[in-house]
């Protein structure tokens, strides 16, 4: 086992274990901080797929933006919001059973597809020998050229949508004057 594989499996185990803890912990603040750990290790996994720029974007936007937004929104707002509604009610194993069943069955379906599929044998992957990224390639160069030429229309659409989300979120979150 090379050191690359070892690092990959350690990081993916961190991501999956912390994700499992996020959904199973009762304390809401703890699960938000573990969510931080999951996003961080997902950025690590992106590096192993030779997508360094996407990994940095994940760190800047998710870890720096989304998470700070979540923490701010709920530590600065009402304290009762943080009280988990599940804690007050009776929450036996039976309550979680449907969710667990559906997600485990779905995981089984996905694994079965994955076993039958063998994605390394796809025709377009077999034919892409010289089109495959190497660890020494400069992905930012390719990304910049592609965003400005081939994917210019989605880029513009996303920028308009971001503006809409900005206005919408500001409008929704503002305090209304008492009439």
């Amino acid at each position: 086992m090379t050191i690359e594989q070892l690092a990959f499996y350690v990081i993916s185990a961190t991501a999956l274990l912390s994700a499992l803890l996020v959904v199973s912990l009762k304390n809401f603040v703890r699960s938000i901080f573990l969510f931080f750990l999951t996003l961080f290790s997902m950025a690590g996994l992106f590096v192993f797929a030779l997508a360094d720029f996407v990994a940095v974007t994940q760190l800047v936007i998710y870890v720096g933006g989304v998470l700070v937004l979540m923490i701010f929104a709920f530590l600065l707002s009402n304290r009762e919001l943080l009280n988990n509604p599940e804690a007050s009610e009776q929450s036996g194993f039976l309550h979680y059973l449907p969710g667990i069943t559906v997600s485990v069955v779905f995981l089984g379906v996905l694994l079965m597809v994955l076993l039958k599929l063998d994605p390394g044998e796809f025709q377009w992957i077999q034919q892409s020998k010289e089109n495959t990224l190497k660890p020494t390639d400069n992905t930012i160069h390719y990304l910049g050229i592609n965003i400005m030429t081939r994917y210019l229309l989605p880029f513009e659409v996303v920028s308009v949508l971001l503006l809409m989300a900005l206005i919408g979120a500001a409008h929704l979150a503002r305090k209304e004057k008492e009439q």
Binding site: A49, V54, Q58, Y142, I147, Y151, F155, V158, L161
Partner: peptide
């Protein structure tokens, strides 16, 4: 990783990250 010239996956991963951030806000 297997599409160096077009890099469609990485570009749309970037778009998806941006959309997710807007959705969360």
């Amino acid at each position: 990783k297997h599409d160096k010239i077009a890099l469609g996956g990485q570009v749309f991963a970037l778009f998806a990250i941006v959309l997710a951030a807007a959705t969360v806000a």
